[in-house]
């Protein structure tokens, strides 16, 4: 008996998929913005001359990069309540994504900072700029420009990784898919469509990041 495909069986549940995509997008945007912000601070700390802070950040980075995202998520959602920190599914998912991207982007952005020629920094020092001013005006933008493609890829990876958040019942796209196929048993059709949706979202995200990069690093006169 051959399997008869029935993509029409998904149609009654389309709202679940749209809601899932919206939640996935929300998780990604918040996770990316705050996660990259965390990564910038982490990279600065790692590249700074303060050994204690640098080591603390180093431990954080290694801890996150050498453990599974799913376990990090479970720890935040199921583990933290033991310490009195009870988060909703969405809060736990977004926090896990921030913490995860923060660690990876720390290392990526640090590579960009290390690629800034020492002479640039010495020139800024000679102009009596302090460390914060040097980082803000001389280092940050050229550093981000150098690693923007790598950082963009990492953000896409984190977006795709958000599918794991279905495991704590955060109602993102994969959660929607699981739910629909549990009702209509149309696993092939549901996951086929959801694969396509993730693909579209990834491509859109990459394009968005490219546009953002062009905007950030475009040559425009400030005066």
């Amino acid at each position: 008996m051959a399997y008869k495909f029935d993509f029409g069986a998904i149609v009654p549940h389309w709202e679940l998929l749209v809601d899932g995509m919206i939640l996935t997008a929300e998780l990604t945007v918040i996770g990316a913005v705050v996660g990259v912000g965390l990564g910038i601070m982490g990279a600065w700390a790692r590249a700074s001359r303060a050994p204690v802070i640098s080591q603390i950040v180093g431990v954080y980075v290694e801890l996150i990069r050498n453990t599974p995202f799913l376990v990090q998520l479970f720890f935040i959602f199921f583990g933290l309540p033991a310490l009195g920190v009870k988060l909703t599914e969405f809060q736990a998912a977004v926090l896990a994504m921030i913490v995860n991207l923060g660690a990876y982007s720390t290392e990526i952005i640090r590579a960009g900072i290390l690629a800034i020629p020492q002479g640039q920094i010495e020139a800024a020092q000679s102009l009596a700029m302090n460390r914060v001013q040097i980082f803000r005006y001389v280092v940050l933008l050229p550093a981000l420009k150098k690693i923007w493609p790598a950082l963009s890829s990492q953000i896409v990876i984190v977006m795709l990784g958000s599918s794991v958040c279905s495991q704590i019942a955060a109602e993102e796209l994969t959660f929607g898919a699981n739910y629909i196929q549990a009702i209509n048993f149309r696993a092939f059709e549901v996951y086929f469509v959801v694969t396509g949706l993730y693909l579209v979202m990834s491509i859109l995200l990459r394009m968005g990041l490219k546009v953002l990069g062009n905007y950030l690093f475009e040559r425009r006169r400030h005066v």
């Binding site: 020139a123 102009l127 001013q133 933008l141 006169r221």
Partner: peptide
């Protein structure tokens, strides 16, 4: 002040912005 062998201008700023930066921020 100091001037270097390798110039060390900031590549993301124009000549004018390179010169204006430190008077403004410092």
């Amino acid at each position: 002040g100091m001037v270097f062998q390798q110039f060390n201008l900031f590549p993301h700023y124009t000549a004018l912005e390179n010169v204006m930066l430190s008077p403004q921020v410092v």
